[in-house]
């Protein structure tokens, strides 16, 4: 371990958190938006670089570099070549990746617990599972939103009792989280748990029409932020908590503002399709 890492790492994370908030503040005005983005970019670079000397990191540096470089290259390339009109679905895609990352972090933590290497406190386990659910929903939901806007998924599935089915799937996910909480995580339970959480995200998003997609993407953006915040708590990195929760709260506000600008309420966007399906079923 590099001497002084116990001080350097948290100090750099702290500086990153300050720059993130300052950057986001700048982004709320057209004049300072670009400058704000540069601050946030510097913060991100600093946080990523300093993580290589994080005291908890013991190995797999090569894999880390491969993942970082390959994902960055692909994401950079795709974001560059895409047409300006396709930007909303790119936000959905990259947001989904963030949600998936948060869910995968929870997966590793739960696997570690299964192998008995980590002894999570009750609250930590609860927060980890909750973050896993939110992250998974944001992941699969965002990918469906991406596929819809990209034109890969043209159909809007609406079937009778959809709301009830969604509720059941979500209920089973919560139940599985509770079983993991009581009985401890086994690989089988974990696969089932993440499977149901991902299915919930898909089921929630498929009945929503294209016009409402920006609001939904904003909602998933807020959810990913929240999931990231929870991961920050589990991993004991306050910078993650702050960046995640600030985005979670700002994203929730933004979702409401966007819905209002479209003369829609959030419940309308989320559940309007269901009522329509019932009407259709009744009419047919």
């Amino acid at each position: 371990m590099i001497p002084g890492a116990e001080f350097i790492v948290p100090a750099a994370y702290f500086a990153a958190a300050v720059m993130f908030i300052y950057g986001l503040k700048g982004m709320s005005s057209p004049v300072t938006a670009r400058q704000g983005m540069i601050w946030a970019g510097i913060a991100m670079l600093l946080a990523v670089l300093v993580t290589f000397i994080h005291p908890k990191v013991e190995g797999n540096y090569g894999l880390m570099l491969i993942a970082l470089v390959s994902a960055s290259g692909l994401a950079w390339w795709w974001a560059r070549i895409v047409a300006m009109t396709d930007m909303p679905q790119m936000i959905a895609l990259y947001n989904g990746m963030g949600g998936g990352s948060a869910a995968a972090i929870a997966g590793v933590e739960l696997l570690k617990m299964h192998s008995g290497q980590s002894d999570m406190a009750t609250t930590t386990l609860l927060v980890a599972s909750f973050g896993a659910i939110i992250g998974s929903i944001a992941f699969s939901g965002s990918l469906v939103a991406f596929a819809k806007l990209q034109g890969w998924l043209r159909k809007t599935w609406r079937f009778p009792k959809q709301q009830l089915i969604n509720l059941v799937v979500f209920g089973i996910t919560i139940l599985l989280a509770l079983i993991i909480f009581v009985a401890g995580p086994s690989p089988f339970l974990l696969v089932l748990f993440f499977g149901f959480a991902l299915a919930a995200g898909i089921l929630i998003t498929i009945p929503i029409g294209g016009a409402d997609m920006p609001v939904i993407i904003s909602l998933y953006n807020a959810l990913t932020g929240l999931a990231v915040g929870f991961k920050g708590f589990v991993l004991e990195i306050p910078a993650l908590m702050i960046a995640g929760i600030v985005v979670g709260a700002a994203g929730t506000m933004l979702t409401q503002l966007m819905a209002k600008a479209m003369n829609r309420s959030l419940t309308n966007v989320l559940f309007a399709g269901f009522g329509k399906a019932d009407e259709d079923a009744g009419g047919g």
Binding site: A16, F20, G23, M27, A40, G41, M44, N221, T224
Partner: peptide, 15 residues
């Protein structure tokens, strides 16, 4: 922009 900021999750992934 806020979508970018929650990309900080990569730090958690690295850890």
């Amino acid at each position: 922009g806020s979508n970018f900021i929650h990309g900080i999750v990569v730090v958690g992934g690295m850890v």
